[in-house]
Amino acid sequence: MSSASMQVAASSGLLSVAMFVVGVVLVTILAGSFWLGARIKQRELPRPRPDEQPHLPPDGPVHEVREYREPDEVPRMPKGGRALTPYELSNMQTRPSTSKERRRWSPGSSGSFGGGGLGGH
């Protein structure tokens, strides 16, 4: 736009009217969104009453079972025997450990691969 058309628009108040109309449109959209949100909320199910809340089982809370498990041993091949392929190995299961002592990481090891420690030496 040229400066002459800007002067005409400013003197006639067209720019002020346009800003006012944009403001009214924004306020109308906000009010409509609040109205629509209220209508949607009215259609929702009511909140459950205290007697409809879940209750504990009759024998009390359920606690976790903590046990230590160890894997089955991988079959060892005799000297000179051929190596087993993955298809010949069974699905490796675990069994409860005979030791009830909690296992700890070895000193100086982070316990993870690539953790930056020296590893178990």
Rank of each mutant, 00 (worst) to 15 (best):
P86E: 04
R69S: 10
S99V: 04
R43N: 08
H55E: 04
G80K: 00
R66T: 00
G60V: 00
L30I: 02
P96K: 03
A83W: 14
R82S: 14
A83P: 12
M77W: 03
L84E: 01
T85C: 09
S33Y: 11
E67K: 14
F34W: 07
L30Y: 15
P46G: 03
K79F: 10
P86Q: 11
T98G: 15
Y68I: 07
A38R: 13
N91H: 10
T98L: 15
V74G: 03
R66L: 12
N91F: 14
G81I: 00
S90A: 09
A83S: 13
Y68W: 14
E52G: 08
G81K: 00
L30K: 09
T85D: 12
V65C: 12
P61K: 05
D51R: 11
I40L: 15
A31F: 06
P50W: 08
E101M: 11
R76M: 12
R43D: 05
F34T: 00
V62R: 10
L89S: 07
L84M: 09
N91E: 10
G60D: 01
K100L: 07
V65N: 13
G60L: 00
E44G: 01
V74M: 15
W35I: 01
K79P: 13
E101G: 09
I29N: 13
L56W: 05
F34Y: 08
P48T: 00
F34H: 05
R49G: 09
E44R: 02
G32I: 03
G37K: 02
R102H: 12
E44W: 01
